[in-house]
Amino acid sequence: MFKRSVVFCSLIFSFLLISSHQTILADETYTLHPGSYEPSSFQTPFIVGQKGQIRRPSDSPFKDSNYSFYFKVDDPSILTFDEKGNWQALKPGTTTIHFFISTSEKFEQEKQRLGIKNFTATEELTTMSVTVLEPTIDVYRVYNPNSGEHFYTIDDSERKYLYRLGWHNEGIAWQADYDGLPVQRYYNPNTGDHHFTLNFTEGIHLLQIGWQNEGTAFYTHGDSGVMRLYHPRKKVGTHFFTTSLTEKEQLLRLGWQDEGVAFPFIGPE
């Protein structure tokens, strides 16, 4: 009885093991779409200097293929591919990618290796517009002469809107990223003041006393620090952020208090 149980369990285990892998059937006809790919292998946003390899979907019989793609890029000085689907973002700009199924000998050999004898290709034209971004993004600083508040944004439309409302342009404060540490923006509906912080505990405290979370203002990382100062007698514009030691020293002489480094940023090379 014990021997039969062992044999039965072994058969079940073997069935589960075989079932866990996709089986390529020799007589099966598989359909391949020119533009089908695994999303994680070719994700936006594209940043200058990024590299990767575009792959077929993980549930596709072609998932282990390296030569099934063929690309035409309208401006290959922005984004380029090699025959194995390795891509590289070269410079900022927008271009269009045209996806085709390869007719190369290497793909024919690959199909034999994968055990795929029959497949059909959909004929629909697949194109994709992609934008490659600079590795950093400018954080603008604007000033409200009526309230005394300084405001920081990476949104050029928001910056221009504030100009029309009478805010003053104070240029680029520092540079942020498209990924990294998320700096949160909070708004006080009673005073109109804004605050920026990486500190989760501080954010929870602000919500508890009536501030509103306006989401991620920008992402940041780096070896340099954005310094934070606080003025105890102000009701609006209570906090000030700067990367300038000279500006910091001037504000300290005017009664502002040093609160240390607020968050990192990418300093000058």
Rank of each mutant, 00 (worst) to 15 (best):
F2V: 12
K3Y: 13
R4V: 08
C9L: 15
C9S: 13
L11R: 03
I18N: 06
I24R: 03
L25A: 11
D27A: 13
S36R: 09
E38M: 05
P39W: 11
I47D: 08
V48Q: 11
G49E: 10
G52R: 13
I54A: 02
P57K: 00
P57E: 00
P76F: 00
S77F: 03
L79R: 11
T80K: 07
F81C: 13
D82T: 07
E83M: 11
E83S: 15
N86E: 10
K91R: 15
G93E: 10
T96I: 13
T96L: 03
H98P: 09
F100D: 06
K106R: 11
Q109V: 02
L114A: 02
T120C: 03
T122W: 02
E123A: 05
E124K: 06
L125E: 13
M128L: 15
S129L: 04
D138K: 13
Y143H: 15
H150G: 01
Y152H: 07
R159D: 07
Y161I: 02
Y161N: 14
L162C: 05
L162I: 03
G171P: 02
W174S: 02
D177N: 12
D179R: 03
D179W: 00
L181H: 06
Q184T: 11
N188W: 06
P189H: 01
N190W: 05
H194V: 12
H195S: 10
F200C: 00
L206G: 00
I209S: 03
G210K: 07
W211C: 01
E214F: 01
Y219H: 09
T220L: 04
H221L: 09
G225S: 13
V226F: 07
L229S: 05
Y230L: 10
Y230K: 06
P232M: 06
V236R: 14
G237W: 08
G237D: 10
T243P: 01
K248S: 05
R253D: 14
W256T: 08
W256M: 08
G260E: 01
P264S: 09
F265V: 08
E269K: 12
E269I: 10
